[in-house]
């Protein structure tokens, strides 16, 4: 089996995650789709590490995980704060910057 299949899988998961960001209205679900995208890129990095024969891809994937964790922390804190004032977690609520 061609290791490129992993990369195709990664592309597919990335596309699904991206469409989820565009389509879901619940802020937390949007965030989860972003996590899905990050995971897809992680898979691609690990595959590239394996394909190249060095561990750089894995190191990068590791850093991605760390940063994703930090990002989740802050992002969820923001969502909670917004929820406290607005009583709603819909991303469509913040629409004042319009024409």
């Amino acid at each position: 089996m061609n290791p490129m299949n992993y990369v195709y899988l990664s592309a597919l998961l990335f596309s699904i995650g991206a469409s989820g960001v565009l389509l879901r209205r619940n802020a937390i679900v949007v965030f989860m789709c972003i996590e899905l995208m990050l995971n897809a890129t992680n898979l691609a990095f690990v595959t590239f590490a394996r394909m190249q024969g060095n561990l750089d891809g894995q190191v990068i994937a590791f850093f991605v995980m760390v940063v994703a964790a930090a990002e989740v922390v802050v992002g969820l804190a923001i969502i909670v704060t917004i929820f406290r004032t607005r009583r709603s977690a819909s991303v469509d609520g913040a629409n004042l910057l319009k024409y």
Partner: peptide, 22 residues
Amino acid sequence: QDAPFLGVVQVVVYTGAVMMLF
């Protein structure tokens, strides 16, 4: 794919901590 460390970290940190946080 010969990335055991990452696999375990994925389960522990990502699935275990981040998703539970979610």
